[in-house]
Structure formats: C-alpha cells, structure tokens
C-alpha cells in the first residue's frame, strides 16, 4: 500500500509543479505613449508652414525635406476612426477665428492603422518637422515621408512610426468639445457660392473640416435603379446603392459619389474608401448634411470621418 501511496504522492507533486506558467498581471497603460515626451516649443503655425513651403505644397505631388526645427501645434479634427481616412490624421490651428487666414488645417500621414486611439478627435498635438517632409499628396498639403505607391509613383506618404516617437508630442488629453471640431459651414447659399469661387481653390483652403448639404446624384430619379459598372472589376454594383461598393473601386480603393448642393447648380464629390463602415451605408435619397475633411483636386472632395458625419 505504501508503494501505491508513494506513486500517488509523486503524481500529486508532479501535478502541483505543473501549475500554469502562462499567467500575467494586466499592465498599467495610463502613461503608455507612442509619441515623444518633449519636442520643444512651437515656433510657427500651420499657416506659417504652408507659406514657408508654398512651392512644394502647391506643386502637385512634390515635397521637400525639412532640415531645421520647425514646430507647430494643432488639434486633431480628422482621424481614421472608421477606416475611411487611411494612415492619416488632419490637424487644425488652435484658437483662430473660423475662416481667418490662420485657420488652417494640414494632413499628417503616419504609417500605421488604428491611429485614433492615440490621436482622438480634439487631441492637441505638437509636430516638429525636422527630418520630415512637407509637400502635398494630390494637391492636399501634407506632412510625412516619401514612398513609392503600388503604381510605382513617388509620392509623399506616411511617416514611419519611429518618427512619431521623435517628432510628435501629445499636449494634454483629448477635448471632444474643442471649438476647432466645429466644421466650416457650406450649407448656406453663401457657403456654396464660396465653394464655386475658383479663387478659393488653393492650398490655403485645403484640407479643411467642412459641412455641406444636398442630394446624392446616384440615387436620384432613374439613376437610383441603374447600377454602375466598375471600370476595374467589370461588375455591376448591388442595389440598393451604398456609398462604396467594392465592385466600383478605383485605383485609390475608393468610390466617388456626387453630392448635388442645395442650390442645384454645383456639386462636390463624396469620396469613400471601400471596406469600412461608411462604405456599406445605404445612400440616402433625400437631403442630408455631410461633414468631413474637404480638399480640392479637380473639384472639391469630401471624406467623411465616421457614420456620424451624416445627419
């Protein structure tokens, strides 16, 4: 019997030794950062950056490396919370009067998905441009680093995350009530008139957080039941129409819809990436207000930030 007990004792010992090794305490992430702790004091504004780098910013798809400490601040007004903006945040100058000269926005490209937990709307950030590049991507002023696109073109793309760790600093906590989150209002006839004015179509007005109102052309009248065919996929879009069916994707993996402004004599483009929550929303046939990041290429074009940007 002692022998049996000795085996049972041994088994118990062996099993007690084999208690779980894969157990871990949850980390405290209150102070977790992917950004720098201190990058210096601001010495310019977004407007100042746009003026200083006017040439690379205003010449399509050019850029220039910054060799000196140029530091500016802004509030995050656009991010990738829905996935419609990709590897991009948009920041806006702090505290200026809306539509004043210094009420400027600029795109900041970061080579990482899911930026919004770090750069929530209303988050104040500081950027040191030293070592980064300033220019434009398809005429939208941008900060980032160059890259070759999948078509082999050299463009100003997102900066590596390593640069975020040295060149971007968070200032305080996000403020979802920040006044900078109020979009410029183009829903009025004056606003639409402003959009039609070709003098406004320049780098100083692009990008911007904007609000427009109107009807989407693709779901009006007979067009509503007339599916478009994707030039690349060769397939027809499903009905009822949604903002960005995959079959209509273009070279930028997005779909353009036409928003007829209320005055009905001008339009802008609503551009939506495929494969995100906005893409699958049915297009409303009646008049709605759309908020998002507006920029100018051949026409004004808006990218919504989330499904909440449709009212």
């Amino acid at each position: 019997m002692n022998k049996i007990f000795s085996i049972i004792f041994g088994a118990t010992l062996a099993f007690s030794m084999a208690s779980c090794m894969d157990s871990h305490d949850e980390p405290n992430t209150d102070n977790f950062l992917i950004t720098a702790k201190q990058i210096g004091e601001p010495n310019t504004t977004i407007y100042g950056v746009k003026e200083k780098f006017k040439t690379p910013i205003s010449t399509n798809n050019t850029f220039e490396q910054v060799k000196e400490d140029i530091i500016f601040e802004g509030v995050v007004v656009g991010n990738d919370v829905s996935g419609n903006l990709y590897q991009t945040i948009v920041i806006r100058h702090i505290g200026s009067t809306p539509e004043a000269t210094d009420d400027q926005c600029i795109q900041v490209g970061i080579k990482h998905t899911i930026l919004y937990p770090y750069f929530a709307l209303g988050q104040r950030i500081r950027v040191n441009l030293k070592g980064l590049y300033v220019g434009n991507y398809s005429r939208t002023p941008k900060v980032g680093q160059p890259y070759y696109t999948s078509s082999g073109n050299l463009r100003l793309g997102p900066m590596l995350l390593e640069k975020v760790a040295t060149n971007i600093q968070l200032i305080g906590k996000p403020n979802s009530e920040a006044p900078e989150l109020t979009p410029r209002d183009f829903t009025t006839s004056e606003g639409e008139q402003w959009l039609r004015d070709s003098n406004n179509r320049n780098y100083l007005n692009s990008p911007m957080l904007a609000k427009v109102s109107g009807l989407i052309k693709e779901v009006q009248g007979s067009e509503k039941d007339n599916p478009a065919t994707g030039a690349l996929s060769g397939r027809k879009e499903p009905l009822p129409k949604i903002f960005a069916p995959e079959v209509l994707y273009d070279a930028g993996y997005a779909v353009d819809r036409t928003l007829l402004l209320k005055s009905n004599n001008s339009s802008i483009t609503i551009r939506t990436s495929t494969q995100n929550d906005i893409a699958f929303l049915p297009i409303p046939a009646d008049t709605h207000t759309y908020t998002g990041i507006m920029s100018y290429y051949s026409n004004w074009q808006m990218q919504m930030r989330s499904v909440n940007d449709i009212k």
């Binding site: 980390p27 992430t29 937990p117």
Partner: peptide, 15 residues
C-alpha cells in the same frame, strides 16, 4: 508589444 495592445483596447473601449 503587449502593453500597446492593452492600451489600444482600453482607449477604444473608452471611446
């Protein structure tokens, strides 16, 4: 980077 995943999850849930 485990801490990063925890951070993102907590931030995303907070939002």
């Amino acid at each position: 980077n485990w801490d990063k995943m925890y951070h993102i999850n907590r931030q995303n849930e907070a939002a």
